[in-house]
Nucleic acid binder design. Structure first.
Length: 592
RNA sequence: GCCAGCGUAGCUCAGUGGUAGAGCAGCGGUUUCGUAAACCGCUGGUCGUCGGUUCGACUCCGACCGCUGGCUCCA
């Protein structure tokens, strides 16, 4: 989409600064390359672009780098920066460039792919690079940088090409900005869902059981149950039917669907049952199709929306597993909508509305909406692809949702809309997804009888509005840093008796609140209240009720909020009503 | 799967070619206490697994398993 954008003065300045920063980061990559070249004269160079917050450069070196190499390279870079060497641009013919870069096979490969006859080289000191530029005037312009990590990276992102060594660095316009960035990273690490999951006793993944398989502990399970209950209610309200389908089914089903053919590498091996091959499901769609197909469907029944919290198992390569965000067994908040082509736009809009409603209710604010279009390998007619993609666009436009187009990233069976959440470190994880499917209705002959009395293929939409329970919990945890709003908190109230003689009263309060559906516990240990309060704080429990002689005498509770806010004295009735409201309204605050 | 790093008590971490330590947690006791850590004591580890080198390995080497950071992948 091309549009003319008029920038304000402020935006222009900002854009200008971003550009400068990017140039500086790119120049830092060249300086790093020079430093590496001085340490490894035989180094072969790949590419070295500026990226978010910094830069990287890919090298082929005679030995593996270790973290100990980074300070050495940094020191060399600092020397180069201190000597303030100019960056010289030089335009040459491709032939000349070939001679100059004769010892650099990767550069020659890049050179071959440049259509122009003239190319530009950049030189600083002893280092020459094929590069479009621009660069700083000289190396002294690099203000603040730090090399942060080493990683393997396939040449040109292709796993069949050699693996190079990539060094990542960060660079900023000032030492202060760099320090702030590094501090931010440290802060983000504290919100890591893997760390919080252990500290708050929400879940575990155990080597004994196998990687990528999640154990939901009682407290994590509470959060999940609350989410699931809310999810079910909201779906029923919006005209979905909740269904359940088996976890294994005959392999033939997945042969018919095409998964066996197209999705093999993610499937677990079939198992044999009485001479028949069965497979554990990687997806829920077939179950829903089978329910749909148990009888003839009339156009009058459509749309049919089958929803299921369906647990699926997919083989993921060991290197890609990541906490709860990328696992081998997970529960999708799945649904499949069977409708006519005419109903498609309304249905997609309905799903978008639901997805954004949930996203908003859970408090997410930073997410990205992506429209993925037709990939190179695709099923179905070109024309239906275009129509469907247009329908997705229309639905997005109708709800005034800003989105980016991700060209060619659609699924082989249809275009899709994805919503991506960011984790604490800014990595994007796909949550909700809405996918139009041209493939399965054909393969399974999923039809309805139209008004014209004829059989028509249904339009099918696969969709999740949270993604999976596992990944969604990960996102929630990082979003809230473990400090869940009251309605989601595993324990909502901790009652803290001052001394043993207040235990009876504490248990009385407990049963009063519990009968109201509040998740409440009494910390009845013979410990000081300082300790109990500290532990309740660390557990991020929203409300602490301290009860001692005064409270027993007056039939009140002393309410302390986890925010550390001053304790207030309230009657039980008033506290109970307050927390009831906070829970029912899914309030993000703690006020009573 | 690939590249690199890491793996010591439930958690956070120290440690050395001569046979393992702290804090927290846990357990026992004392304390009955007013809004973020009372006190005393005790328990706890085949140092990820399996092999090798060595008189001797937690330490050195190799393989495997797992985790972490990336790459690839993610319908």
């Amino acid at each position: 989409m091309i549009s003319t954008v008029v920038l304000s003065e402020g935006q222009r300045t900002k854009a200008n600064e971003d550009k400068k920063l990017e140039t500086m980061r790119h120049s830092a990559a060249h300086v790093m390359a020079e430093a590496v070249q001085s340490l490894f004269p035989d180094a072969k160079f790949g590419i070295g672009p500026a990226i978010k917050n910094g830069f990287y450069y890919d090298f082929e070196l005679p030995r593996s780098l270790t973290p100990d190499d980074l300070p050495i390279i940094e020191a060399k870079m600092s020397e180069i920066i201190a000597s303030n060497i100019p960056f010289n641009r030089q335009e040459v013919s491709k032939g000349e460039a070939r001679q100059i870069l004769a010892s650099q096979p990767y550069k020659l490969e890049l050179l071959d792919e440049i259509p122009d006859e003239k190319v530009s080289l950049y030189r600083q000191g002893s280092f020459v690079d094929l590069c479009r530029g621009p660069h700083l005037d000289s190396t002294g312009g690099i203000e603040a940088f730090k090399l942060v990590s080493i990683a393997g990276a396939y040449w040109r992102g292709n796993e069949h090409r050699p693996m190079m060594q990539r060094i990542y660095g960060v660079a900023f316009a000032s030492k202060r900005a760099l320090a702030e960035h590094l501090e931010q990273i440290e802060e983000a690490a504290k919100r890591d869902h893997r760390k919080l999951g252990r500290e708050l006793d929400l879940f575990s993944i155990q080597e004994e059981a196998g990687p990528g398989l999640v154990f939901w502990h009682p407290k994590g399970a509470v959060i999940r149950r609350v989410i699931e209950d809310f999810w079910k209610d909201e779906h029923v309200r919006r005209g979905y039917d909740i269904v359940y389908t088996p976890h294994i089914a005959r392999l033939d089903l997945w042969k018919t669907s095409g998964h066996w053919e197209f999705y093999r590498e993610h499937l677990y091996s079939p198992m044999e049952v009485e001479g028949q091959e069965y497979m554990i499901k990687p997806m829920n769609c077939l179950g829903h199709i089978l329910i749909y197909k148990t009888r003839r469907r009339s156009y009058q029944e459509l749309p049919l929306r089958y929803a299921e919290l369906g647990t699926v198992y997919r083989y993921e390569r060991s290197g890609v597993l990541f906490g709860l965000a990328r696992v081998r067994g997970f529960t999708q908040d799945d649904a499949h909508i069977f409708c006519s082509f005419e109903q498609l736009e309304d249905e997609v809009a309905g799903v978008l509305d639901l997805a954004l409603f949930l996203t908003d209710t859970f408090g997410f604010t930073n997410y990205k909406v992506l429209l993925s279009t037709r990939p190179e390998k695709y099923a179905g007619e070109l024309e239906s692809w275009e129509k469907a993609t247009e329908i997705l666009r229309q639905a997005l436009a109708r709800l005034r949702i800003a989105y980016e187009v991700d060209p060619g990233e659609g699924v082989f069976y249809g275009p899709k809309i994805d919503i991506q959440f960011e984790d604490a470190l800014g990595r994007g994880w796909q949550g909700p997804t809405i996918q139009v499917d041209f493939n399965l209705p054909q393969r399974f002959n999923v039809t309805y009888i139209g008004q014209d009395g004829r059989e028509h293929l249904v339009a099918m939409v696969h969709r999740t509005v949270l993604g999976s329970m596992e990944r969604f919990l990960a996102s929630l945890l990082e979003h809230y840093g473990g400090v869940f709003p009251v309605w989601l908190a595993p324990i909502q109230v901790m009652i803290i008796p001052v001394a043993d003689r207040h235990l009876d009263y504490a248990h009385h309060l407990e049963s009063e609140l519990r009968s109201e559906g509040v998740r409440v516990k009494v910390d009845g240990r013979s410990e000081r209240i300082n300790l109990k309060i500290r532990q309740a704080q660390l557990d991020k429990i929203p409300y602490m009720l301290v009860v001692g002689d005064k409270e027993v005498a007056a039939s009140t509770v002393s309410v302390r909020l986890r925010s550390g806010e001053q304790a207030t004295s309230q009657t039980l009735e008033s506290f109970r009503e307050g927390i009831r409201l906070a829970i029912a309204s899914k309030s993000k605050g703690l006020s009573l």
